[in-house]
Design a protein around this nucleic acid. Structure first.
Length: 420
RNA sequence: GGAGGGCUCGCAUAGCGGCCGAGUGCACCGGUCUUGAAAACCGGCAGACGAAAGUCUCGUGGGUUCAAAUCCCACGCCCUCCGCCA
């Protein structure tokens, strides 16, 4: 949720943000009107209630006719209070519903435009020249078959499209990646966490996933629960309704992630780039609002460290305004080079959500002037399947074997994956 | 799934329908004392909205009442016991 004070004092900031995102602008003025109406109703209710409280107190002291007169008056007032209260509640609900529709106020430094209008910040590493090396690179599906590491056919048989089994080296690669990620994160001061992946509605709503992203969320209707698409959700909701001391707090959550991938029919249908279920290590930070920007850059550095350790060529992009999630004011993606696609593909992503989520989840910190919402940020350390794709494709040899990045060797026990 | 018990300010507890937004202890913060600390003593100590007055919050929602932490109803959560199962 946005800060309503900004809305009242600088509505143009909000209008502009919605416009840059390509989202509804009219809702801003609807909210301004609804907010004003709700506040008026609140004042009316409070005035009546104050009167009633005063009168009620005098009942005890009064006697006889005087008492009866007061009681009569109080009875009448009680009715007024009740209707004022229900009017207040109704208008507040209306205003809140509108407020929840407005996305976080965009960082004006983010590039303007749609999905294609990202800005490349830097490129790290150099893609291999397979032509020069004298062989045509195989894609991860082929290599996965040769190494018996990925089985998408049986995945489809058992669980349908966008499902897969990681077997042998595939499974071992996941364990190695996760162990390396957790050890990197732990060294950097993150607390490792294995969170629940089934959450209640407030957690989902609070993190902003039931808005524009709702169609991609698995809903367990029989129990009114949701499967999370990222551990960002349980990590953010972890401190719901709490006042935090000792910021910053950093968690590295390892969990399965579930995505319906509605609306992506026909996109990345081959292989394990876009799947319904995968495991991921996610960094999540709670910081003071003034530290959010610096934290965002730190998260990006940790993501870069990981990719460098995987020896994968990649680039960092500054995601454009129209392509941001509703909670994020700015987002950096790391995109790994995928040889067989001759393209960079997103493997990690970090978002600065400022106080948007914490306002909904009621997570605050204390300073001299009382309590304030904290800022929350998230960043992927490793999303396993996509990282496996990047490793298999970038480190392949002509014979179908794959070199293991040095960083993973201690966890995998070998320096080369060879078909057995 | 069946049967009971409970949900009050970080924790533990008190609380007759009005004098309770709420007492006490512990913890915590500030001060006095001390070479320093402990102890002792003094003071502070829930949050939201609001410029303030004031209003709201005793699991949540509803009801009774002039007035609800306190009475009634529903729901949620937690605990114990039984059954089933990893």
């Amino acid at each position: 949720m946005i800060d309503l004070k900004v809305l009242r004092d600088n509505p143009d900031v909000v209008r502009n943000s919605q416009k840059l995102r390509g989202e509804d602008v009219a809702v801003v003025d609807q909210l301004i009107a609804a907010d004003a109406a709700a506040r008026t109703a609140l004042t009316e209710f409070e005035t009546l209630r104050a009167e009633q409280n005063l009168l009620s107190k005098s009942v005890g002291a009064a006697k006889g006719d005087e008492k009866n007169a007061i009681l009569e008056k109080a009875k009448e007032l009680a009715g007024k209070v009740k209707s004022a209260d229900s009017k207040r509640a109704e208008l507040e609900d209306k205003a809140k519903a509108l407020a929840l529709q407005i996305s976080n106020l965009i960082d004006l430094e983010a590039p303007v435009g749609g999905e294609a209008d990202f800005k490349v910040i830097e490129e790290i590493g150099t893609p291999r020249d397979f032509k020069k090396e004298g062989f045509e690179p195989k894609d991860h599906v082929e290599i996965g078959k040769i190494l018996k590491a990925i089985d998408t056919e049986r995945g489809a048989k058992v669980s349908g499209a966008r499902s897969y089994y990681l077997t042998g080296y595939g499974a071992l690669l996941e364990f190695a990646l996760v162990q390396y990620a957790i050890s990197q994160a732990t060294k950097a001061g993150f607390i490792p966490v294995i969170p629940p992946v089934i959450v209640k509605p407030p957690a989902m709503e609070g993190t902003g996933f039931l808005g524009q992203a709702a169609e991609n969320v698995y809903h367990l209707a029989a129990d009114e629960m949701y499967l999370v698409g990222t551990s960002e959700v349980p990590l953010a909701a972890y401190h719901m309704d709490e006042i935090l001391d000792n910021l910053p707090i950093r968690y590295a959550g390892y969990s399965s992630c579930f995505r319906r991938e509605a609306g992506s029919y026909g996109k990345d249908t081959r292989g394990i780039i876009r799947v319904h279920q995968f495991d991921k290590v996610e960094m999540f930070s709670y910081v003071k609002p003034e530290d959010a920007k610096a934290e965002h850059l730190k998260l990006l550095e940790w993501e870069k460290d990981f990719l460098k350790a995987m020896e994968i060529p990649f680039r960092v992009i500054d995601v454009a305004s129209g392509d941001l999630g509703s909670s994020a004011i700015r987002k950096f993606d790391c995109e790994a080079w995928i040889p067989t696609q001759n393209a960079f593909r997103e493997v990690t992503s970090t978002s600065n959500c400022t106080e948007f989520q914490s306002r909904r989840l009621n997570i605050r910190f204390r300073d001299e002037n009382g309590t304030k919402p904290v800022a929350t940020l998230n960043g992927t350390l490793v999303a396993v399947p996509r990282m496996i794709v990047a490793i298999l494709e970038n480190h392949q040899n002509a014979d179908g074997s794959v070199n293991v990045p040095k960083a993973l060797q201690p966890f995998l026990g070998v320096d080369k994956l060879v078909s057995k």
